[in-house]
Nucleic acid binder design. Structure first.
Lengths: 203, 203
DNA sequence: TCCAAATTCCTACCGCGGGTACAGTACCAT
DNA sequence: ATGGTACTGTACCCGCGGTAGGAATTTGGA
């Protein structure tokens, strides 16, 4: 890795841990450059402004999260043949994954960006949108597999249902933080799992 | 209303519309005092700091929202006898209510506070928590009425289920904003309605 | 080995926003 | 008339994002 890229990565690492701990706008550039051991000028050489930093962080985060989802879905596929069972396993794993995150997950980056609108520009919002659409695609495929075998007990739009996975995660995070009860997020995901179960289980 | 209370209200009104339009931290005190036609000193006479303003706004907002929920649940009670029907009607009304909000609802205050943590202090978070617990109580009662008549098709915790209403709203708002598709929130609520339907409908 | 480009440092500065300090004033009720 | 309540006015501080522009250093390539 070229010298410049190393520094860039160091900045991102430092910024990431600070942002996850305290939030984006509570993390000052001065603080980042201090911990990354370079100067303010050095920072602005790598990032046009704080927005550019946010964009880089978000893109990085999304990549990792995508990978996480893929692994999770793959594990579910390995554990069962039946598409409904696979989905139920996947949602169970997802709930466990989120429950295991120590201080209750760092709070999804997507939502942070959504709720600090004015801080971010078009590019950031676009990256955000692509990420969410990616999740929709993944879970939609999961539900497509199910309906090919089990008819739904109620008339639902599968894209919306796929969105519901993300929606419940995001909402669950908000609720967990509002209530100061980290376990809430996982509980909400398990309720979604229950929905999937009763929706597709044959009578 | 005393002279002081009038001014205080004027500040809150001006602040509210600005905050709903642009977000809390994008709204400067200078701007508020300009539109409320008083001075900075005048502002700080009424509010210790920006935090106190946030608290007042949130408490006000929660009051209105509580009233809205109560009206909605009352209307549902008027429209049907059967507790399951009532719940389904309430959720339908809720979806319509949210869908009718012009530029897609202003984004729930609770979530804004949650995601701008460091901006707010303990008091604000406490107010937030109480609000969410209030919603839990309301919807929990709704579900209690249902289980008294219809056994659930799956084993679910009713508090969690009650929380799911809030959760889906919050998550739906995040998704709608992330996707720039305002209709998403209402769709998510209708999916929750579908869950309630299949969960409690006798086989 | 030398040059140019890339990378990092240094210093000084700007504007905005939240917030403080404090003196003065207008109004209203007892 | 007096004392609280509700302000106005002015001046100031600090942190933060960001800019300006030159100097130094490192690095890869001809």
């Amino acid at each position: 890795m070229a010298r410049g890229q190393e520094t860039r990565k160091r900045i991102l690492d430092v910024a990431q841990s600070a942002v996850l701990a305290k939030g984006f706008d509570a993390t000052s550039i001065d603080e980042i450059v201090a911990n990354a051991e370079l100067t303010k000028s050095g920072f602005f050489y790598h990032f046009r402004d704080k927005n550019a930093l946010a964009l880089a962080l978000i893109e990085r985060h999304i990549e990792i999260e995508d990978q996480l989802f893929d692994e999770l879905l793959q594990r579910a596929r390995d554990l069962a043949e039946d598409p409904l069972q696979r989905a139920l396993i996947a949602l169970k794993l997802l709930a466990e994954l989120i429950d295991d995150m120590p201080n209750g997950h760092p709070g999804c980056v997507v939502a942070t960006a959504v709720y600090q609108d004015r801080l971010f520009d078009r590019e950031v919002r676009e990256a955000n949108r692509r990420a969410v659409l990616g999740w929709r695609r993944r879970f939609r495929a999961m539900f497509d597999d199910i309906v090919a075998v089990y008819p739904a007990q109620d008339d639902v739009d599968l894209d919306s249902l796929a969105d519901m996975v993300s929606s419940v995660i995001e909402g669950g995070i908000v609720m967990a933080r509002a209530l100061a009860e980290p376990s809430v997020t996982a509980q909400q995901i398990l309720l979604l799992r229950s929905y999937v179960k009763v929706l597709f289980s044959p009578r």
